[in-house]
């Protein structure tokens, strides 16, 4: 696919940052507001789609390393499973950090409140782990499906060319 025009690329430069920050916000605040790892991860993975569409595959794939994404995905899944296994003294997936003080251990007041970020025990941890996994997984799917397009374009021998160059 060819890169889009300079207007699209300029707007993409601005909004890609907002997408990343908003996705990180949704992931980190998953236990006190609507959202969570899956939703925020999908928002952040949209950034990869935006960059691929606006800049074309040749430029983006020249500095994106899929090995980093693979490592991030394995790390997220391992942290998730480890956090599940660490509570096995009581049951599998027991929330052993909630209400203990310390990391993620604040006790929230009952009823409606304004929310405490340092609460919810392993739920916060699992939100971040799953968010990492979803970000890297969806980005990997997008990048590899984009790479698959060249299976069709290589036949005619076309190369990517922008509008204005």
């Amino acid at each position: 696919m060819n890169p889009l025009s300079v207007v699209v690329r300029t707007i993409c430069d601005i909004f890609a940052w907002f997408l990343g920050i908003f996705g990180a916000y949704v992931i980190i605040h998953g236990h006190i507001s609507p959202g969570g790892g899956f939703q925020g991860g999908a928002v952040v993975a949209t950034m990869a789609a935006l960059l691929l569409v606006a800049y074309g595959g040749k430029k983006v794939l020249s500095f994106v390393r899929p090995g980093i994404y693979t490592g991030m995905e394995a790390t997220g899944l391992l942290v998730f499973i480890t956090a599940g296994f660490l509570g096995i003294g009581t049951t599998f997936f027991y929330n052993f950090l909630a209400g203990q003080g310390g990391l993620f251990g604040s006790v929230v007041p009952l009823g409606p409140n304004s929310g405490i970020l340092n609460s919810a025990g392993t739920i916060s941890l699992m939100n971040m782990a799953v968010g990492l996994e979803v970000v890297s997984g969806l980005s990997l799917i997008l990048i590899y499906m984009f790479k698959g397009i060249r299976l069709f374009e290589g036949r005619e021998g076309r190369s990517e060319r922008g509008h204005d160059r």
């Binding site: 969570g36 997936f93 909630a98 251990g105 939100n127």
Partner: peptide
């Protein structure tokens, strides 16, 4: 009270029914 979390949906996804999420 049990899990000190405000978002009940997240508490079900990641805690009460964490095996599904796995």
């Amino acid at each position: 009270r049990e899990r000190s979390v405000n978002n009940v949906v997240t508490s079900i996804v990641f805690d009460y029914r964490g095996f599904d999420t796995l």
